[in-house]
Structure formats: C-alpha cells, structure tokens
Design a binder for these strands. Structure first.
Lengths: 242, 242
DNA sequence: GTCTATATCTAGATAGAC
DNA sequence: GTCTATCTAGATATAGAC
C-alpha cells in the first residue's frame, strides 16, 4: 500500500497534547501546522506545499514541479517521499478527516468540560453548539487545508476514497447522535433528523469554500454565529410577533 | 472577446416562457435542458457533454477528447464552436449564474403570485421560503450543472471570473434584501444580516455538492426541508420546553 | 462543419551521478 | 536525500482534405 512508505505522516492523533484540548482546536496552532507531526522535514514541507497548491489551483491543475518548488526542492525529490501526486492528496485528506472526527468526538461527548451533567444526556444544546462552533472554526482557521480535504475527494483513487468515505460517515453519525439525543429529550424539535444532520454538516463544511482571512469576520465569530443559527434550526420557532 | 463567437449561447433569459414561470423552475424541464436555447445543435451537445464531464471529473481533469466524444464528434470539431476549453466553462457558468439571479429575482419580489399583499413588504417569510425552496430545488434538480457552476469558478480566466463574481453579488443582494425587509418589519429576528445571508446562500449552494438522485429525498423535499430550516434560522426560537 | 493527421507542449515519473 | 537530465504519455489546439 502506498500508505506504508517509511517516511510517513503522523496523524497527530497520538502526537502529544499540544493542540487538541477540550476547548476545541486551532486556538493555539499556527495558521497551518496540521501536519506538525510529519517527518522528515522535507516530507512535511512537501505536504504543506501541496496543500497550498491544491487549494489555489485544484489537484489536477497542480504540477509536481509546483509542489516541489514551494518546498524548495527539485521535482524529482518529491518521489523520494511520496510515490505519486495522489498519495500527497491522500495524506492531506486522511489527516484532515481524522481531525474532523476528533473534533466532533470531543464536542459530542456527554460528559462536558468540567460541567456536572446529571448523566442522562440533558445537555444536547451544549453539545451541539460546541460541535458546530469548533467544527466551523476549524474549517475557517484551516480553510486552505479544509478546501482540499472537502473539495478534492474525487481525485483520490478508489481504495483511498473508500477509506475517506468511512471517516466522513463517522463524522456524520457523531453529529446525528447529538440531534437524536436532543430530540429524544425534548430539547430539540426536529422534523427530519437525517436531513437536518446533512444540512448542518453541509453548512459547516462549506465555510471552507468561501472563508477568507481578509473577510470581515474571524473564525471565532463565524463559529459563534453558525452555532446560533444551527441551534435555531433544531428549535421550534416562536410564534411570529404581529 | 471569446464571448462573441457567432454560434453562441442563448441565455434563456429571452427564450420564451417554457421554463421560467412564477412557480419556480425546473418542474417541467427535462433533467438538463438548461441549454435548450443554444444553437447550432452541435454547440449544444458539446455544452452538455462538457457539463457532464466537468461535473464528474473536474475542469482540469477533463480532456477535450472526452467532451467531443460525449457529443459524438471528433476532438477537432470542438474548436469550430468554442475557441478554448475555458470558453465552454464560461458559457456554462454564465448561463447557470444568470439562472440563479433570475430564480432569486422572481422569488424575492414583493408582489407575490396571485396574492393580494397589502403593499408594504409584509410577506418577507413567504418571499424567503419561496427563494430558498426554488434555489435549492434548482441546485438539486440540476446538480450536475450546478456543481460545475459553483465549484469550478477558479478555472475561469480573469475577465470571465470578474463577470461571474458580479452575478454572484447580485444573487446575494437579492437574498439579503429579503432578510432586511423581514428584519425591518419585525417578522424576522436576525443578529447578523450579512452573515446570515452568507450562511443561507452557502447552505443552498452546497446542495449541489452532495445531492444524488439515488438519495432518499427528491429535490422538492429537500427544498421544503431547507425552507423550513432557514425560516427557523431567522426567527427567534421559542423558549425550550422543560 | 466535420474528419484524419499531427504539431507542440507540458505533465508525471524515473535514471543515475553526487 | 537531493540534484540534473530525460523518458514517455497524453494534453490542447491547428492544418488541410472532404
């Protein structure tokens, strides 16, 4: 398998506690060190170059020369670290999707951060707000990576694509679980749980497409706005004042 | 300019009343005749082939041979009708974006279909529901075209890109107008109108990315669901029942 | 307007010196 | 592990016959 080259990508899943705390993620990571765990250095620089290039121009329009150039290397050097251009995309996708799953796992759990939740999933709104807020923040903060992760999937080979789809399903299930819990407890009033789950995922993901650091809102602000909008989506509206 | 080749694309803006009635759009159009006005026949077939191919594989990964093949022609024949591959994308984008503007213009107007609205923009919720419903329906029904229209913009040349961005701004302004009217009349309770406008646009647009005709919902059902979700987004939530 | 044939270029990937 | 040089394939676009 292409994924078992010896100089390969560390997921970050086990790479120490420097960037995945309970309060979300990205707050104290620099603009794009999603690949901090990758060694050797050249392999990481190539990955970062690939992310930039793929985000700017798309996978197919990006040349290996371009990627190598951004990493300060010759075109041939790329192939020491990655078998193909597609393998670069796969590593980016995998790390990004694993991060998504982790963010949502963290946010969706019932034993909230420091809170003394009674136990029976009473706090679905808190979990939902936390999930949307940190998921959106990640897509804005790491919009370059996220753009590649979310919009270049079709360039993966079949095997890699299947693996990524599995991770996406896990993310969706995590979010749906929160909506189901809230519906069961009466905190939410949702007409179509599966459909609403999809809509919320879609809303969060699409942040990566339009977000710009030059825009008028910070990732934090967008996260807060979106959390509020989503909370309204799952809550029965008040009768319109006349 | 590339856009003035003699055998070129009719917008559909003036092409008769066969598919843009007051009750939305797409209901009685076949799966993809967004380009019904294009003549000669070969030019239209090429456009349809390009839409399919771009949607499946992306602009850069699509070869002119592929497009020509789908249209039942040799690679060279393409260049009789279009100067470059990019021009095909431009025509697809332009027609699609003009359709979006038209759908939103139609839906956002204050003199609703047959209704006797008093006159002072009392019916913002109706306008919003109508807008979201038909905009979403278009993105689902024509998801192949919409995918190209929404996700391949970066492959346009600078001049064409600028033109398309102008159309996108018009769409956004149409939607924002509805939210502003509803906020002014007290029908809506929106914290951040610009941000909410963006979120709603984003939600609708992203339907094109994930929609599949094999999925469990029809375009109509998704449109209805989304209209409800968006209406909740702009309405003050009822206090949670305890 | 369409075809066959082809010019020209550029991409991904490899060979082999250092 | 990195470089220079290069192989090979396939892309866009054009030429010229029909």
């Amino acid at each position: 398998m292409a994924s078992e080259t010896e100089s390969q990508v560390a997921t970050g899943e086990n790479s120490g506690g420097d960037d995945g705390g309970a309060d979300g993620d990205g707050a104290f990571t620099t603009p794009d060190d999603s690949f901090g765990g990758v060694t050797p250095d050249a392999a990481r620089r190539l990955l970062l170059g690939a992310v930039e290039a793929f985000a700017e121009r798309g996978f197919h329009a990006t040349t290996t020369r371009d990627i190598a150039g951004r990493a300060g290397m010759s075109p041939a050097a790329l192939y020491i670290h990655y078998k193909t251009k597609e393998e670069l995309l796969y590593q980016i996708s995998r790390v990004g999707h694993e991060r998504s799953v982790r963010i949502l796992t963290e946010a969706a759990r019932t034993d909230g951060e420091g809170g003394d939740s009674g136990g029976d999933g009473e706090d679905a709104p808190v979990r939902l707000v936390r999930a949307v807020r940190s998921f959106v923040r990640w897509h804005a903060e790491h919009h370059t990576t996220a753009r590649v992760v979310q919009y270049e999937l079709s360039a993966l080979n079949e095997e890699h694509y299947a693996e990524i789809v599995g991770l996406r399903r896990r993310s969706e299930e995590l979010l749906r679980g929160v909506l189901e819990d809230g519906e069961a407890s009466g905190e939410f009033a949702i007409a179509d749980i599966r459909g609403t789950t999809l809509a919320v995922m879609s809303l969060c993901i699409d942040v990566a497409r339009w977000f710009s650091p030059q825009g008028r809102r910070t990732p934090e602000e967008i996260g807060a706005l979106y959390a509020d909008l989503v909370l309204r989506m799952v809550t029965a509206p008040a009768p319109a004042p006349r």
